[in-house]
C-alpha cells in the first residue's frame, strides 16, 4: 500500500508534517531566545521591534530596548542558529561520507586546525578579521594535510582518513598548547583561553554574514549531494560499482564540510559535540536516509545551538562558556542516544 503511494512523495516532502514541525520549533526557539536575556524587554515589545523593520507599527518601546533586541540579541541568535546548522550539517555529511556514525567535524582535523589559526591570530593580536581569516585558512590546511596523508596511490579509505585526522588534530592541539604557553599571561592568554572555550558573546552582523554566506555557498551544495552521500555510505567499492566517482565525491564532501566548520570556529571558537550529537537525533526521528538527515540536522542543530546559547547567557548574570555547556549537555545526551540505538539493534530509527 505505502509502496504504491510512496513514488508520488519525493524525498524532501516525505512526512511533510515533520518538516513543518522542525521549522516551527526553530522559529519558536529563536523567538523565545530573542525575548530572553538579562535586560528585561517585554515580549510584545520584542515582537513590535522585529515587526517594525518591515512594517510600520506604533513605537511602544524605548530606544534601549530596540538596541538590545536588534543589535545584541538578533545577531547573537542568528549566529547561534547558523553555527549550529553548519556544524550539525557538516557532522551528518561526514558521518555519511566516512560511513562512521561516531565521527564529528573535529575528526578530520578541521576544528583543531581552525583553532590553531584563531589562536595564532590572537597570539599576534591581529584583530577580528585576521582571527576569522586565519582560522579558516588553517582549518582548510589541516584537512588538506590529513587528506594527503590518508591518500595512498590515488585512494583514501575512510578509516585512514579518520586516523590521519586524529594525527593532524593532535599536532594542531600541541601547537595550540605551545602558543598558550608562550602567550603573555596578562594580555593575550586570557583572550586565547576564552576564545578556545567558544562564545557568541561578541556576535555582530559582520560575523552573521561570514557564517551565513558560507552556509549558503557550502551548505547548499552539501544538502544537494544528499543522495550521493547515501551511496557513498555503502562503502567505496559498492559506491564505485554503482557508478559514482568515489574519490572525487568524498573530496567534495570534505571540502564543503571544512568550509562550514572553519567558518563556525572562526566566529565562535571551538564548539564541540554539536556535529556529533545532532545527526543522531535526526536519525532517531527520521531514519538513516541522508536526504532527510542532512536538512533535519541543520534545523535541529540550529535550534539546539540557540537553546544552548540562550542558557549560556541568561542562566546567570555572568556568561557560561559555550563549549562547557555543549559538552555538559551533549555528553549525557550522546550516551543516552547510544543506549537508545543499541537497544534498537542498530543506529537507526
Amino acid at each position: 500500500m505505502t509502496s504504491q503511494i510512496a513514488p508520488a512523495l519525493m524525498p524532501l516532502r516525505v512526512r511533510g508534517g515533520v518538516w513543518w514541525l522542525l521549522g516551527a520549533f526553530l522559529v519558536a526557539v529563536m523567538l523565545v531566545s530573542l525575548s530572553t536575556g538579562n535586560y528585561q524587554v517585554p515580549v510584545n515589545h520584542v515582537v513590535g521591534i522585529l515587526v517594525s523593520s518591515w512594517w510600520p507599527v506604533e513605537v511602544t518601546w524605548t530606544p534601549v530596548e530596540a538596541r538590545v533586541v536588534e543589535l545584541i540579541r538578533l545577531p547573537r541568535v542568528l549566529i547561534a542558529a547558523l553555527v549550529g546548522a553548519s556544524l550539525a550539517l557538516a557532522g551528518a555529511a561526514l558521518q555519511g561520507a566516512l560511513r562512521n556514525p561516531l565521527v564529528g567535524p573535529q575528526i578530520v582535523g578541521v576544528s583543531s586546525g581552525a583553532a590553531l589559526g584563531g589562536v595564532l591570530a590572537l597570539f599576534l593580536a591581529l584583530g577580528t578579521a585576521a582571527v576569522i581569516g586565519s582560522a579558516f585558512v588553517f582549518g582548510a590546511l589541516a584537512m588538506l594535510i590529513a587528506y594527503s596523508m590518508a591518500r595512498v596511490s590515488g585512494n583514501s579509505s575512510p578509516l585512514t582518513l579518520v586516523l590521519a585526522g586524529i594525527v593532524v588534530s593532535a599536532f594542531c592541539s600541541a601547537l595550540v598548547s605551545l602558543l598558550t604557553y608562550l602567550a603573555n599571561p596578562e594580555d593575550s592568554l586570557p583572550t586565547i583561553v576564552y576564545w578556545l572555550m567558544g562564545s557568541f558573546a561578541t556576535a555582530s552582523f559582520d560575523k552573521v554574514w561570514v557564517v551565513g554566506s558560507v552556509l549558503l555557498l557550502a551548505g547548499l551544495p552539501l544538502v544537494l549531494m544528499r543522495f550521493r552521500i547515501n551511496v557513498l555510505s555503502l562503502g567505496d567499492e559498492e559506491a564505485q560499482s554503482l557508478g559514482i566517482p568515489v574519490e572525487r565525491t568524498r573530496w567534495a564532501v570534505l571540502a564543503l564540510c571544512t568550509a562550514l566548520v572553519a567558518a563556525s570556529v572562526s566566529v565562535s571558537g571551538v564548539v564541540d559535540w554539536v556535529g556529533l550529537v545532532i545527526p543522531h537525533f535526526a536519525r532517531l526521528l527520521l531514519g538513516p536516509d541522508h536526504r532527510k538527515v542532512l536538512p533535519a540536522s541543520m534545523l535541529m542543530g540550529a535550534a539546539y545551538m540557540v537553546i544552548i546559547d540562550t542558557l549560556a547567557r541568561s542562566l546567570t548574570s555572568a556568561e557560561i562558556p559555550l563549549g562547557v555547556l555543549t559538552a555538559i549537555v551533549g555528553a549525557p545526551i550522546f550516551a543516552w542516544l547510544l543506549r537508545q540505538s543499541s537497544r534498537r539493534g542498530a543506529l537507526h530509527d
Binding site: 555519511g96 560511513r99 562512521n100 556514525p101 547515501n230 555510505s233 555503502l234 562503502g235 559498492e238 536519525r283 531514519g287 538513516p288 536516509d289 541522508h290 542498530a346 543506529l347 537507526h348
Partner: peptide, 9 residues
C-alpha cells in the same frame, strides 16, 4: 553482501 552503518529502507 552489504554492510552499512546506516540501515536504509
Amino acid at each position: 553482501g552489504t554492510d552499512t552503518s546506516f540501515p536504509y529502507r
